[in-house]
């Protein structure tokens, strides 16, 4: 498995896309930090971008890689290697190379800017952690979709739809739900709905750590009471981990049964 991971990792690391992805974050980080000169503001803007882009890139990359590496996968399947190892290796290869691009792309500008001394380093690490989690989650989801659909167009369509669903439509439905039931106490519903979606969960985890959390007022207080405690932190980390583990489990099950 490690060998396959190494192979797909180095394969991706050499590809132009990884460099482009790295360069994008690098320039973005540099530009934001040195033009705005306000760390908190820069982190908020970065958060907006990371929360939309990492899932999208994860989805697109996962789909692209698995479709294009299909022949290689078939070749590997002919060897005496466990299926589990092949797919897990490839999955981890993609996710970790994307995560590395993200971490280096944002980390280097922040290190140059000198984040170590400021109080924002925790927030920044939280942002990176959220980005890495989202990459792992959305790559897993997209690989699931590619395995179930031989048709590339269909696979792409479903993958993009999944991203759209979690990044945009979910919030829309959430908002409509809140508006429709605003006569009722909504605290626990709000909490539950935002914990279930990994993108919302990451956004709130980061927002609560920033200055801007004061805007959240009474609702923010409820959230802080939950996420501020060890219990809440464990729950939210647990949910993020579940979002990785469940799709990966599904992926392995599908891979095992699938007739190539």
């Amino acid at each position: 498995m490690i060998k396959i991971l190494k192979y797909s990792f180095s394969d991706l690391m050499r590809s132009r896309w990884s460099y482009a992805y790295f360069l994008f974050y690098f320039l973005l980080g540099m530009g934001l930090l040195f033009l705005s000169n306000d760390l908190s503001k820069a982190i908020i803007t970065l958060m907006n971008i990371v929360l939309v882009l990492t899932p999208l890139i994860g989805t697109v990359f996962g789909v692209m890689y698995f479709y294009s590496a299909r022949e290689f996968t078939e070749l590997l399947l002919a060897q005496p290697i466990k299926r589990k190892h092949i797919f897990l290796g490839q999955y981890l290869g993609i996710s970790s190379s994307l995560s590395l691009s993200l971490i280096l792309g944002l980390g280097i500008p922040f290190l140059i800017y000198g984040i170590g001394g400021s109080g924002q380093s925790v927030n920044f690490l939280l942002l990176l952690m959220a980005g890495v989690f989202l990459t792992f989650i959305f790559v897993a989801l997209s690989v699931n979709i590619t395995l179930r659909h031989e048709n590339k167009i269909k696979g792409f369509g479903y993958a993009i739809l999944t991203w759209l669903l979690l990044a945009v439509i979910y919030d829309g439905l959430f908002l409509i739900g809140l508006l429709m039931f605003n006569e009722y106490p909504l605290d626990s519903f709000t909490l539950l709905a935002s914990v279930l979606n990994p993108i919302d969960l990451s956004r709130i985890l980061i927002l609560l750590k920033l200055d801007i959390s004061a805007l959240l007022g009474y609702t923010g207080a409820i959230f802080r009471n939950f996420f501020g405690t060890d219990y809440g932190m464990i729950v939210s980390l647990g949910v993020l981990c579940m979002w990785v583990i469940v799709p990966v489990g599904l992926l392995l099950r599908t891979a095992k049964k699938k007739d190539f």
């Binding site: 908020i44 958060m47 907006n48 929360l51 939309v52 990044a167 945009v168 439509i169 919030d171 829309g172 959430f174 908002l175 809140l178 508006l179 605003n182 909504l186 605290d187 709000t190 935002s194 993108i199 919302d200 956004r203 709130i204 927002l207 801007i212 805007l215 959240l216 007022g217 009474y218 609702t219 923010g220 959230f223």
Partner: peptide
């Protein structure tokens, strides 16, 4: 306006959907 109607919706602050809205 939405936040004034239903204060709980502030939790969607800075989400992509709200920007589109």
């Amino acid at each position: 306006y939405v936040v004034n109607q239903t204060p709980e919706t502030i939790i969607l602050l800075r989400s992509l959907f709200v920007d589109i809205l």
